[in-house]
Design a protein around this nucleic acid. Structure first.
Lengths: 212, 212
DNA sequence: ACCGATGCTGAGCATTTGCCCAGCATTGCT
DNA sequence: AGCAATGCTGGGCAAATGCTCAGCATCGGT
């Protein structure tokens, strides 16, 4: 019962073309620009094809999201498995395209329950991966999880990159370089063996930490 | 010339009612829910009134934004003028309602140029205020601007709060408490006189800082 | 008593949207 | 040769949208 309508096969070529078109539209003009007609035009196909491959627009959005998310999870896992997980994670998080899309979906989630749930599910998987890797990294660097919980670090990294991407889209740039430099210095310190979470190496005239 | 259409006075009561309605809609259902009909229904007024007070929907959005932004600038200035500017700034930044609205506008900005420009202008004013205050705070705390630029701190604070608000809206919570605790500890350290940017006060069994 | 400004509204138009249906071609299987 | 599955499309409908216009009511000032 449910719906009798015939739906196209998941591996059909034009289905992927439509997904690509939707994704590009979303990035360049925001999710509100993603209508069946606009997507079709962008893809160079007829509008009905959208409904042939996707029961509803919600399903289109979900499919665009899932494709990226699955790929992202794999990519992140690969990054975290390397020998400089922190830096790799940072580079992964600062990809402007992926981050831009994520922000767009987050906004979409505000009024599409199905999208909200799916995003939340994947976001938790991403975060779990990060936390697991960060736990090891910080431990190895001798940083106590009490003082500096891996979960907090994960959130810092992703939030910084997200907001900077957002601000760049607005045409802003003030402070971006400074913030990035700060983070990158800290990453370098941690991964090159020098312990210290946020404390600058040179303390501006203050005596060096009484070590030993 | 331009437009002959008669527009209602800026101080008319129902104009404010419409702005309130639009704002509430935006927060609760996302900007896509803000149409002239929906706003009117939410306000308990007729749809044409929206067009009577606002030439275009863009203008409605801009007006909603400006109202909040102006009020926000004043509020932030007040907060930064107190004797615990850092903490006050943090509390200001973590107001969920205001932050939620900001995120929504940021998404809107993606396909409404007029909104984008206005947001950018105000965002820069906010940031300038923050940087100015933070410069003093960090200086007084003996933290070098080279190691830890005020602009970077400003971005950290706002980005964290923004993303946490966003995630909360998705129903997520993992790591939020840890991240907040981390920030709040650092704020406390700085404003209670104990210098140190990111280094945990208790270094995991290390002796307290040699004061004196 | 008059007039202009102001608040408001009924009616409507052109456009866009999501989605559906019936049906045509082609392809691959038997 | 026959048949089912699959890709695709012309045509369409009901709903929502932004925005306009002409006009009615009220009210403060003169």
């Amino acid at each position: 019962m449910a719906t009798r309508r015939r739906i196209g096969a998941p591996d059909a070529k034009n289905r992927a073309v439509l997904l690509d078109a939707a994704e590009r539209l979303m990035l360049e003009e925001g999710y509100a620009a993603v209508s069946s007609r606009r997507v079709a035009r962008q893809a160079g196909l007829k509008p009905q094809l959208v409904h042939y491959y996707f029961r509803t627009m919600d399903e289109l959005f979900l499919e665009v999201f899932r494709r990226r998310a699955e790929e992202g999870l794999r990519e992140q896992a690969r990054a975290l498995a390397g020998d400089r997980p922190l830096r790799a994670l940072w580079e992964f998080a600062t990809q402007p395209e992926a981050t831009g899309l994520t922000m767009e979906f987050a906004a979409l989630a505000n009024h599409r329950k199905s999208v909200r749930d799916e995003i939340a599910r994947y976001a938790e998987r991403f975060r779990a991966q990060e936390i697991q890797a960060l736990t090891g990294v910080l431990e190895r660097a001798g940083i106590s999880a009490d003082d500096c919980p891996p979960a907090a670090v994960a959130i810092f990294l992703t939030s910084l990159s997200r907001v900077v991407v957002m601000e760049k889209a607005l045409g802003m740039s003030a402070g971006h370089d400074e913030a990035f430099a700060f983070v990158e210095r800290r990453i370098h310190e941690i991964e090159s063996g020098r312990q210290s979470v946020g404390a600058p190496s040179g303390r501006t005239g203050a005596p060096p930490p009484a070590s030993g």
